[in-house]
Design a protein around this nucleic acid. Structure first.
Lengths: 345, 345
DNA sequence: GTGAAAGCGCTAACAA
DNA sequence: TTGTTAGCGCTTTCAC
């Protein structure tokens, strides 16, 4: 069969100048299926034939069209990734882990961000689903029921990350934000702090941290934590400074502040230093995320460690295993909560 | 023609349970082409027919297979993105801009990182090319000739970013790293500094900044800048502290340090504060990138502003315009170099 | 406004 | 080891 012309009426030549299997086959003096095999299962082709094919591929600069491949093989080699925002390195670290874990298997990342909007999330998932990804990774837990139904109906492995749930769509690799709040409250109370403040955002993760924090205070019979909120997302160092400034005027003055993110906490430390407040003697300051800046800062920031990169890495591994045919019993991976005690609290 | 069975010998039913156009058409009592049209050009289909189709789509949860679509239409709706690393927010900010600029047009981002390796870069570009992306955005200038040839042979618009060149593969949206180095050297000299140091990494961008910095020193007849290098990539706050510590022991002590990244510079400021060195009175400190932390820090960091998000945004716009048929004459977009004078220098 | 036929580039199944 | 045939799900072309 001649390229660009079949039984019926002649059609115009391919407008795409990219060579295809037929071009390579013709040049190598073999059939297209042999070329296809030489590329995918080289040992099934006689070395001699293979050499001619390799030369032809090289000469033509042939690059297989993966759209055609995925159409027929039903494997796209794509992992779809949904992120709340690409503007926060704490999430792109997870993306980084995914990338590292996925490229080893020759797969690629199709990425989209939702801007924390459920509507945008659903639209994004639908759009990504059109590519028939082999697997899906999501930063966050999907709350919207339609989205959950859509995802579980896709018939591909799904990993939710960055939070914990009893009832993942498929897999979850994360940690409990509530447990993080609890742990930090306990830590601060154990160090003798009694007038605790919480600072966070309005997103679900931050709210969960607050809930845990408050719960422990209540159990300990302490006054409910004063709480300060920011609408910024992602939060900023400057916002941390502003909030700390307001907190410093409270009467009686608090002796500990748990900022829901390291970024805010670092701002808090900077502001304390400006105000001449001794951290941690007068006020203990703690954050969450274990950003590198917290380690370099003086005083070094006490924080809840979040294995952002590792969660991505692990999610990628789970997807890879599932795609290799494994039937993982362990659907829930809880990285737990680990407080890094440093100087600020 | 019945689904899953044609003229020849019967074949097994489709193993993929996802509904296709034929399923929708059957349910809507029309033909597949009409369904296709109803989805892509709704006004070309009678409202009545369209309603039945919409209902069928809804009922079946039909999601078009974009692999099939891109195979035949030769438009994939994919923008391929090449990033040196996903571990540095300065680059993922560009990714963020790309995402925002690209999703408006209903396209998606296929992302890969190279780890700064030319070999990995070539492999990645090849892999991405297999998806037949509609456009390609690259963080950095592609140096490897084979990669450049490959990219220009793809027949799709390409935008390089984050650096400047006279000879882009197609388009470049960036700034001159050498000019950044020059500008900062001039700034420091104009402020009366005479013993200048450079601190940077080993990557090409950092080297270009250093070259510009040194050139101005030479023109001004000053002693060549002492230079300190880090192999870390991305650089860290801690590394900035360590390097600053070493610099503080130099005799005679320098009176200005230009760190090639804000991250290093912030570390430098922290270390100075620890050492009791007055910034900027004793030593001026400057960075590059205009990270938010530099604004919140005390003293606030003088830096070279890098419009990371905007470069991504602009790159996306250029790709969109090209894909809409525009033949842009302006191949080179230089964002220029803008020094943000704050307290540290 | 609607539809039939052809075919995008590739791989699965089977045959030689 | 190599080749033939069918067809993945969709859009393009052309006809009605």
């Amino acid at each position: 069969m001649t390229k660009g012309k079949r039984r019926g009426r002649p059609i115009r030549p391919r407008p795409d100048n990219a060579p295809n299997l037929e071009d390579v086959a013709r040049r190598a003096g073999t059939s297209i299926i042999t070329v296809s095999r030489a590329l995918r299962q080289p040992d099934k082709v006689r070395p001699e034939t293979r050499a001619r094919i390799t030369a032809a591929v090289e000469a033509l600069g042939y690059i297989p069209n993966l759209a055609a491949s995925s159409l027929v093989s039903r494997r796209s080699g794509i992992i779809a990734v949904v992120v709340p925002t690409l503007g926060n390195s704490i999430f792109t670290d997870t993306l980084h882990g995914l990338s590292d874990g996925v490229t080893a298997a020759g797969r690629q990342l199709l990425v989209g961000d939702t801007g924390y909007s459920e509507a945008a999330e659903h639209a994004l998932i639908t759009a990504l689903a059109g590519r028939r990804p082999d697997g899906i990774a999501i930063v966050g837990i999907v709350r919207n029921l339609r989205s959950r139904t859509l995802l579980s109906g896709l018939g591909v492995p799904v990993v939710e990350t960055w939070d914990m749930t009893d009832d993942p769509i498929d897999h979850v690799v994360g940690f409990s934000n509530e447990a993080a709040g609890r742990a930090m409250a306990r830590y601060l109370i154990d160090r003798g702090r009694r007038r605790l403040v919480f600072v966070g955002g309005n997103d679900l993760r931050s709210r969960a941290r607050e809930a845990g924090y408050r719960a422990v205070l209540q159990e300990a019979g302490l006054a409910t934590a004063a709480a300060f909120f920011t609408d910024q997302s992602p939060s900023s160092f400057g916002e941390g400074r502003r909030l700390m400034h307001r907190i410093s005027t409270l009467e009686p003055r608090p002796d500990a502040v748990f900022f829901s993110t390291d970024v805010l906490a670092v701002g808090g430390i900077i502001e304390c230093r400006q105000l001449g407040i001794d951290v941690p003697r007068e006020i203990a300051i703690a954050g969450l995320g274990d950003l590198e800046i917290g380690r370099a800062l003086v005083p070094a920031l006490t924080t809840v460690q979040i294995p952002s990169y590792q969660m991505g890495r692990r999610a990628a591994e789970i997807l890879s295993q599932r795609l290799a045919g494994a039937d993982l019993a362990e659907k829930i991976v809880d990285f737990g909560v680990n407080i890094v005690a440093r100087d600020s609290a």
